[in-house]
Amino acid sequence: MATADTITEVETASKVELGSTPTNERPGRRNRVLRTVGWYALLSVLAFLVLFPVWMTIVRALSASLPYLSAGQPVYPVEPEWDIFSRAWSRGNMGRHLLISAAVTLIIAIAQLVTSVLAAYAFAFLRFPFKRVLFAAFIATLMLPIEVTLVPNIEIIDTLGWKNTIQGLTVPFLATAIGTFLIRQGFLGIPKDLRDAARLDGFGNLQFLWRVAIPVTRPVIASFAVISFLAAWNQYLWPRAITQEEAMSTVQIILRPLAAAAVGEFNIGPAAAIIAALPILILLIVFQRQLVRGLTAGAVKG
């Protein structure tokens, strides 16, 4: 996806082609052609395997359910119903659920950005009592998956009267230590000279944060924003646990009842899934560079 740029860089820098023959062997032209064809064949088979489930979902969404079944489930659409997407849209009330998802996701992503930048700044640049204790507290929140605290958090949201509300869907996720650590790491990379210069210019903390620290670490912050957005959009367990009213379901949650529709309308669920996937697909294509950087942060050195 987004990695192609880097690949080209790596490859132009390299003299040796991967998969090339050892130097003491004269590569025959025919051999080379055969090998290239072989690679394309392998890549095509793999691409087919990866895409097959998606293709079958499209086929199933488009096909009229009963004729498709009686045709023995071919790998191409049967009696295509092009209006299936608009039908799934109105049947699933998808406009509403997409809107709820968008609101929840934007609130979480923006809030996480703000809380993480602030906390990261404190940890990176400021000195204060109990810094190590507080830092350890942040680390602790990363040790456990949210599934561990699911039960009490349902209780807390219930006590606050926040079941089936936007607050209930968002407030527990307004801060994250992952963002704090990623951005803190970026802040720590700011040269000391820059800080000293800013101080000489009379910059206070907020001015330094806003005018220097954030602009300089923009790539890191952008990567975090993308993965934060993606994670919030994809959430399932939490919204499922605290929204019993279908009216407050996010788009992910509404897919399950739609997929379980009667056999005669089995194309509603797949169509709804395609509708739910499209916005994020488009977004990822636009922000692929940030996504890849965010996903690979910490995975690969250098």
Partner: peptide, 10 residues
């Protein structure tokens, strides 16, 4: 680009 929910429906 797929969420777990979308992948599960697929």
């Amino acid at each position: 680009a797929t969420s777990v929910a979308v992948a599960s429906v697929i």
